[in-house]
Every structure is written in structure tokens, then in C-alpha cells.
């Protein structure tokens, strides 16, 4: 949906519950979420990246509906109009040593293809 980020939301006045923690994994409050919307973060994806809410151990499974309710209210839209941030693998946190066993080249042979030579992707 086409959105102008200069849309006037009015002033971000203090509200009851602003110091209540909404995302428990990353300890993000209602007030921080409201302020982020007023700073231009109009999508769930941006809110998550800006504040880390939904990026903790539960990956937003607990708080994402609460967060979208707060964001929608600030924007004056229905929560259903907000696209949820992407869910991504793995479904549950997974140890490196376990995932490392997947898709190995046979008998410890060198993995088939390899990256570049000296020009780092970072």
C-alpha cells in the first residue's frame, strides 16, 4: 500500500500505560512503540527492527498482536490493515552443533562450491 510517511499523526501525548512492558523478551514499553510510530515507523517490520520488539527468544509469538494494536491505534487504522513482520526459520531456537549436521558433503569431503577469493561480503 502506498504510504506518505509525512502523514500528520498529531502530537505524541503521554498515555496511561506508556511505561508498561509490551515485549517481555526485549523489554520494550508501550511508550517506546508509540514514539517510534510518531518517528515514522509505520510498519510492523520497521517497529521490530528499530526497537527489537519481537526479536527475542519467542520471536514475537507472545507480543506481536499487542504491538500491532498499539501501532494501529497511533496510525488510526485497523490492526488487520498492518502486515505482520515475517516469521523465519527455525521454528524454535536450535543449537549450532545440531543444525551443523544437516546437508553435509559426504564423508567430510570438501563442500561442493565455495565463495569468492578475498573480497569479503561484509
Amino acid at each position: 500500500m502506498r504510504t506518505d510517511r509525512s502523514k500528520d499523526l498529531g502530537p505524541c501525548l503521554p498515555m496511561e500505560g506508556d511505561d508498561r512492558i509490551v515485549c517481555r523478551c526485549e523489554e520494550v514499553t508501550q511508550g517506546e512503540i508509540r514514539q517510534a510510530v510518531h518517528d515514522g515507523m509505520f510498519t510492523m517490520t520497521e517497529i521490530r527492527r528499530y526497537l527489537r520488539c519481537g526479536m527475542g527468544l519467542c520471536q514475537g509469538q507472545t507480543c506481536s498482536r499487542l504491538v500491532s494494536g498499539i501501532v494501529a491505534r497511533e496510525l488510526g487504522i485497523r490492526p488487520g490493515e498492518l502486515r505482520p513482520a515475517s516469521s523465519r526459520a527455525p521454528m524454535r531456537p536450535l543449537e549450532m552443533s545440531i543444525w551443523a549436521n544437516e546437508c553435509q558433503a559426504p564423508d567430510g569431503a570438501a563442500e561442493t562450491k565455495k565463495g569468492g577469493a578475498g573480497d569479503e561480503k561484509c
Binding site: 526459520a89 527455525p90 531456537p93 536450535l94 543449537e95 549450532m96 551443523a100 546437508c103
Partner: peptide, 26 residues
């Protein structure tokens, strides 16, 4: 499907101490 395990193997080869670190997202 191939890549995350390859990144895990690389991590363990360079920083063995992280073998029990849990991945939350790719």
C-alpha cells in the same frame, strides 16, 4: 536449506566455543 547448516559448520570451525549457541533466526 543448505546454507544455514553451512554457516553453522563454518562458525564451529572458526569459533568452536559457540557450539551450544542457539540460532533464533535466519
Amino acid at each position: 536449506g543448505n546454507t544455514a547448516p553451512a554457516i553453522c559448520r563454518a562458525t564451529l570451525r572458526w569459533i568452536p566455543r559457540l557450539k551450544d549457541a542457539k540460532i533464533v533466526r535466519t
